[in-house]
Amino acid sequence: MGGHHGEPYTVPHASTYKVESVPQLVEVKEALGRQGLKDPWLRNEVWRYEPKAFGTHRSRLNTFLFRGLGVGFCAFLATVAVEYALGIGKGQGGHGHGHGHEEHGDKGHH
């Protein structure tokens, strides 16, 4: 059986996250303050605004849009190559095949 060799991750101390270091969260804190409210859990959202931990909006968007593009393109090329090698799809390009132009079915109908 495998042994436990230590924590697989380190949990940062709560004091490392400061609401004051994130302008968007400062705005939320001030807006709540104007209404006489406080959010004691607001500090838990700070990590989302750290580019080194969560990335920037642009990097997250790029990851979302282009993840798997290379694998998908390779699969496309492989599919085209297999279809070409097996001859799938040849002769289906607008030559009138299968549209009632067979001569053996017109016997006796002049």
Score class of each variant (00 low, 15 high):
34 R>N: 12
34 R>T: 08
35 Q>H: 06
35 Q>Y: 02
35 Q>G: 06
35 Q>A: 13
36 G>R: 05
36 G>T: 08
36 G>P: 09
36 G>M: 07
36 G>K: 06
36 G>I: 08
37 L>E: 10
37 L>D: 02
37 L>W: 04
37 L>R: 15
37 L>T: 02
37 L>F: 10
39 D>N: 15
39 D>G: 01
39 D>L: 02
40 P>R: 04
40 P>S: 08
40 P>Y: 04
41 W>N: 15
41 W>Q: 11
41 W>L: 13
41 W>T: 09
41 W>E: 15
41 W>Y: 15
41 W>D: 15
42 L>N: 02
42 L>G: 03
43 R>A: 14
44 N>T: 02
44 N>Q: 12
45 E>N: 08
45 E>Y: 14
46 V>T: 07
46 V>W: 10
47 W>L: 10
47 W>E: 08
47 W>G: 05
48 R>C: 08
48 R>T: 10
48 R>F: 14
48 R>A: 15
49 Y>M: 02
49 Y>F: 15
50 E>P: 00
50 E>F: 02
50 E>N: 11
50 E>K: 13
51 P>N: 07
51 P>K: 04
51 P>T: 01
51 P>E: 06
51 P>Y: 07
52 K>W: 13
52 K>P: 00
52 K>M: 06
52 K>N: 11
52 K>E: 14
53 A>E: 12
53 A>Q: 13
53 A>Y: 03
53 A>T: 09
54 F>I: 07
54 F>C: 11
55 G>S: 01
55 G>A: 04
55 G>C: 04
56 T>G: 13
56 T>K: 09
56 T>L: 11
57 H>C: 07
57 H>M: 12
57 H>K: 05
58 R>K: 14
58 R>Y: 03
58 R>M: 08
58 R>C: 01
58 R>G: 00
58 R>S: 14
58 R>T: 12
59 S>D: 10
59 S>P: 00
60 R>Y: 05
61 L>N: 07
61 L>W: 09
61 L>I: 12
62 N>D: 04
62 N>H: 05
62 N>E: 11
62 N>S: 03
62 N>G: 07
62 N>P: 00
63 T>I: 00
63 T>H: 12
63 T>G: 09
63 T>M: 01
63 T>V: 01
64 F>L: 11
64 F>G: 02
65 L>Y: 09
65 L>A: 01
65 L>I: 15
66 F>K: 05
66 F>Y: 14
66 F>I: 06
67 R>M: 10
68 G>V: 08
68 G>C: 02
68 G>A: 03
